[in-house]
Design a protein around this nucleic acid. Sequence first.
DNA 1: GACAAAATTCAACAATTGTTGAAAACTAGG
DNA 2: CCTAGTTTTCAACAATTGTTGAATTTTGTC
Lengths: 217, 217
Amino acid sequence: MNESKKISKKERILDTAEELFAQHGFDGVTIRQIAGQAEVDVALASYHFGKKRDLFDAVFLRRAEILNEERLEALLRCQATSGSAGPTVEQIIEAFLRPLEMEQESGDPGWKNYLALVAYINNSPVWGKELMSKHFDPLVARFIEALKKALPNANDEQIYWCYNYLSGALTLTFAQTGRIDKLSKGLCHSIDFKTAYDHMIPFVTAGFHRVCGQAEE
Amino acid sequence: MNESKKISKKERILDTAEELFAQHGFDGVTIRQIAGQAEVDVALASYHFGKKRDLFDAVFLRRAEILNEERLEALLRCQATSGSAGPTVEQIIEAFLRPLEMEQESGDPGWKNYLALVAYINNSPVWGKELMSKHFDPLVARFIEALKKALPNANDEQIYWCYNYLSGALTLTFAQTGRIDKLSKGLCHSIDFKTAYDHMIPFVTAGFHRVCGQAEE
DNA sequence: GACAAAATTCAACAATTGTTGAAAACTAGG
DNA sequence: CCTAGTTTTCAACAATTGTTGAATTTTGTC
């Protein structure tokens, strides 16, 4: 077995499906397109993953678990370094966002596709609730608990709404539509995640503080 | 002609297409589904609108023009009432968001569907750039000009990134996925646009001020 | 190298897709 | 009522869809 260059056909199907689903959505992609671009027989996708929907789920789940682990680590790490008062809002937001940046800027282009897929799912009235709630919200709940501690004056409603805005700002960045490139006449670039997160962190941190009635220290 | 209750079949196709496209995206809907739900023959959609893509464009354009007019009015109005210094950031954001709230809370349920469709389009790597840039960004550019005046310390890059976050937070709200309902255990409701905008306005206002290096007065 | 299991290909299926041309029904004005 | 124009229906088309069962090849184990 040549383990250095060989990527199994099963993985190639996942990678291609990831890319195409992210670009065109579930219904905008055919199994034949996936198989064609992956240079694989049409029937092989069904053999490995079953129905089309099962393939979609497999693509979504593959990196969701990795992402959750990294985010959890980041949260625990910033909770460990901060005192008994717990981490600040900004530190929590950092822990929430930076793992994404790392993955997106890593060599693996699959992560860019994957997060674009998350953008598609999060904004979908059909799957937004189902998939995101099931696989991301258990961890999100832990981040929100930390935020509550950092914002003692806030009521829960305010925190959840603010998280919603954070989620929206984040997923639109994932989507990489290139709209901001055009609007800013080339000044900003959708693919420049580092800059996107650098601005996003103070933006949402200030938003949380303002809405949740807690002046920034 | 009974003009009170009669809605033409052509309009019924538009309304139904609006609802279904918003829920399932362009590729997730068939002409037959639209025709079926609109109680209309399949061929009638082609007769009135041509290709499927043309119908999609017609749905998108119908309310885009109305929305642009109302938003422009709101901007001009707040610019007129403010002095020569121009409106504050918060006033500009208000002018940007409130017309949406009005429409969404109006009796016409089509507006809710339409804005969910905008959410889908804005987050789509395929259409996000094309449709949004063409039909919304000319007006967005005017709002950004006003924001630049209200934030003299900001550089353009910061402003465009902040607008991107605003756009993301806004469109996720449009999408009405119901995820926040579940996450907050019934405390927040996706359909409650009034509350969504009430929280969003101070959230993004504070974000703009923080990123663009201008303390709030 | 035989052999069982896994992986892969081939061919085909019924169902559904967008679209169209011709026929039919409706509408309005003379 | 006649007629011209618009709207609506009907029927059908070629193409594409997801999926499957059987056949074939590859893989790993003794």
